Computed example of a mutant assay.
Amino acid sequence: MRAAAVLVATVALVATASPARAANGTVGERETVCANDLYVRTAPADGPWMGTLYRGQTFLVKGPKSGNYIYGFAYGHINAHGWVADGWFC
């Protein structure tokens, strides 16, 4: 009985532990956004905001990188080139 309880608790822990991890973008790849929202800017870091990509939308990484930001093309309703914080792709 005790072994069954431990097994159930272990299965429940494994099923809930490891959420999807975000990754850096790869130049030349059309990446899927893992963040709930990802701001697209006209310049890296504090550049003016031009729109928001949401989880499941895509961004074609073109490079270059500037600090923690990467340049590319934001598909969907933005449909323009811009900069996003790197590290938020599936």
Rank of each mutant, 00 (worst) to 15 (best):
P48S: 09
R2Y: 08
V8A: 15
V8Q: 06
G51F: 05
T52S: 05
A80D: 06
N36Q: 09
T52L: 11
N24F: 06
G51I: 05
T16I: 13
G63Y: 06
G67A: 10
A9I: 08
N68H: 14
G76H: 03
T42Q: 15
H77A: 07
Y75T: 06
T32R: 13
N68T: 05
S18Y: 13
Q57N: 06
V8I: 15
N24L: 08
Y39M: 12
R30C: 07
D46S: 15
V11T: 15
V40F: 03
E29G: 02
A80S: 11
G28C: 09
T16Q: 13
P44S: 05
T16P: 09
R21G: 11
F59T: 00
T10Q: 11
R41Y: 08
S66Y: 01
V8T: 05
N68R: 07
T58S: 06
V61K: 07
V11N: 12
T32L: 05
K62L: 12
A80E: 12
D46F: 10
V61H: 11
I78T: 10
G82M: 04
E31C: 08
L53K: 00
T42R: 13
N24R: 13
K62F: 11
A17G: 02
A22C: 11
V84P: 01
V27D: 10
N79C: 03
G25W: 08
G56T: 03
V6N: 10
P64G: 09
A35K: 03
A3W: 11
G28L: 12
A20M: 14
A4H: 13
F73T: 08
V33D: 01
V6C: 10
I70F: 03
V14A: 15
L13Y: 14
T32S: 08
D86K: 00
V6Y: 14
A12H: 11
G51K: 01
R21Q: 10
W88R: 07
Y39W: 09
M50H: 04
Y54P: 05
V11E: 14
L53D: 03
N68F: 07
E31P: 03
G87D: 02
W83Q: 02
G51Y: 04
A22K: 07
V11C: 13
D86C: 02
A12E: 13
D86V: 04
L53G: 05
R2D: 11
S18I: 11
P48C: 01
L53C: 06
R41V: 01
V33K: 04
L38S: 03
R41P: 02
N36I: 06
G51R: 03
V27F: 10
A5C: 13
P48W: 04
N68K: 13
L38K: 04
G67E: 12
G76I: 03
A85F: 05
N79F: 08
P44C: 04
A12S: 15
